[in-house]
Design a protein around this nucleic acid. Sequence first.
DNA 1: GTCTATAAATCGATAGAC
DNA 2: GTCTATCGATTTATAGAC
Lengths: 198, 198
Amino acid sequence: MPRTEAENQRIRDERREQILQAAIQVFARQGYAATKIADIADAAHSSHGLVYHYFESKEVIFMTLIEQAERDAQQTAAAALAQPGDALDRITWLVTRMLQGLQRRPELYMVMVQSFASETFTPELRKLATSQAELIPATLRRLIQDGQASGRIAPGDPDELATAIFCCIQGLAVNVLSPDGLPVTFPSPATLLRLLKA
Amino acid sequence: MPRTEAENQRIRDERREQILQAAIQVFARQGYAATKIADIADAAHSSHGLVYHYFESKEVIFMTLIEQAERDAQQTAAAALAQPGDALDRITWLVTRMLQGLQRRPELYMVMVQSFASETFTPELRKLATSQAELIPATLRRLIQDGQASGRIAPGDPDELATAIFCCIQGLAVNVLSPDGLPVTFPSPATLLRLLKA
DNA sequence: GTCTATAAATCGATAGAC
DNA sequence: GTCTATCGATTTATAGAC
């Protein structure tokens, strides 16, 4: 009794996702260049031939992950702006959410960091990475300006403050995934938001 | 007329240093794994054969740079603790110095980040990297505790605060060197130290 | 749908000429 | 002291069997 087409489709979808999940784990910890297709295949419990059956190249796999991360970031940014309350409430929500995301899935943040930290990627990927890298800081900056206008956030260059918060998040991503790194003490949202305290 | 031995030595020293400086530029921007010996040779205006005349392997070059960065960090940490004034003055000095270093030589910070951000290095190098990665946060933590004891620094988990400051520095290193990154607005020391404001 | 075998290209490292 | 030529190992990607 042959498999139905629907079941084949399900198997393919699962395998593809399995490979992507394996890839993000390895990319985040070894970096793109140091990651071999065989590493991804091993982590996905498949042969390396199968990886090429589902993806054209190593770069396409990475690109797929970056696109995924970008959609995630766009949703987060939009949700932050739509949050109830005033600007400070929205920033608090945004920072809290990113810190949570960082603890739950640090790999996603780490591949984003890598995507715009290396000169070796194709222009296409770099363009995607940089546009993404600007999204969160831009959102933060805007909210900080709003909060300063209403007096709930202390004065100071919004650009500096947004950069400080964003860089802290990125630095955390690097540290959490550090192989033999001692356990990182995550700053609470409240701690980070001291930067903005009026 | 043959070259004197002293002159030969000078030539060798210069070449070696030239290769190291070329290497740190390339490593910081492309990452260790993506960097080819040929890239370093090109940047140093030499052949790749010559690079191997001065260094055993690619890893030894990287290791040499990390050791250099580690000595630098140790001196900085020691100097911070020996600074006049109270704990807050010392932290201010330390943060200011790191931010300056980051603007003058971001490559040094970037290779440090890379050294403990990847699983692919030898245990020896990893050990060096992690011990270094702990040095600055530990110094910060200690100074924060001192400052809190004397009341000049606001209460709060010293570990969280030290992590936040340290991660921000590291995140900045990544962003400054981002290839097509828009110019990064460096937070001033005062901005960063809002985290500690009593 | 999955695997093994292999082709093709790349890169770290060495040898030897000048 | 510096370079070019080359070896050898690794790795991306493909072809074909099951």
